[in-house]
Simulated scan of single mutants.
Amino acid sequence: MTAYSGNSLKSGLKILIKNNPYEVQYSEFIKPGKGQAFVRIKLKELLTNKILNKTFKATDTFYSTDVIEIESLYLYNTRYIWVFMNKKNFEHIHVLKKFLFGCEKWLTNLSICKITLWNNSPISVYTDNFINLKVKNTDVAIQGDTVNLSTKLVKLETGITVRVPLFIKKGDLIRIDTRIGKYVSRIIR
């Protein structure tokens, strides 16, 4: 394990704090006029996906953790266990639903995901920020009714319902921002 002092922490670094893995989101070194230097750190707890703000002494020591990310394909689920395949060695990875953190609503067969492993156990799954999904069903929009509504609801191939502009039809391919769950654009083929 590599050791880091508090003032050498950078964004993206994965460290251990009280035997739990964290990812440094942001760090700021502060040297006040009087007193000891300290570091303000914004951390993401990798086991729960919570964001924490902490303050440490600049001389505190942190150790790196053996967290790795692998690219994988979603295969199927059994309601409690979600099965992915490692793209490099074709091994199957079984992930409990609690480690999906809401990304399961965007998964279709063979969706590409990133799985975070800690001590060779999956602790989180992430999809891309923007994905393309097909419109399965759509509400009927009344022509010229743009005063009341300029959007309508559509059901996507994953079963999720989102608001889209009136010109979107059944069978269209649309881009979705998975971080906020909103329509971005129509994909023209």
Rank of each mutant, 00 (worst) to 15 (best):
K98R: 15
E45G: 08
Q36H: 08
N7G: 03
L16K: 14
D66M: 10
D66Q: 14
T78P: 00
N19Q: 14
L16Y: 10
I41F: 00
S111R: 01
F99S: 14
K114Y: 11
N20Y: 12
T59M: 07
L73V: 00
K57S: 14
T65A: 15
A58R: 01
S72Q: 03
T2C: 05
S27I: 01
Y26S: 12
C113K: 01
K50L: 08
S121A: 13
F90W: 12
L13M: 15
N49M: 06
F84S: 04
C113R: 01
S111L: 04
V125W: 02
E104C: 05
Y63G: 03
G102D: 11
V83R: 13
L43I: 01
W82Y: 15
T127M: 05
K57D: 13
V83T: 15
T65L: 06
S121Y: 12
T61D: 04
T61P: 02
T108N: 13
I70Y: 01
Y76K: 14
F101E: 06
L100V: 06
C113D: 07
I41N: 04
L96D: 15
T78Y: 13
S64K: 11
K44N: 11
K10C: 09
E91P: 00
S124I: 00
I93F: 09
L117Y: 08
K114R: 14
Q36Y: 04
L73W: 12
W106P: 02
V39L: 02
M85P: 06
N119F: 10
A37Q: 09
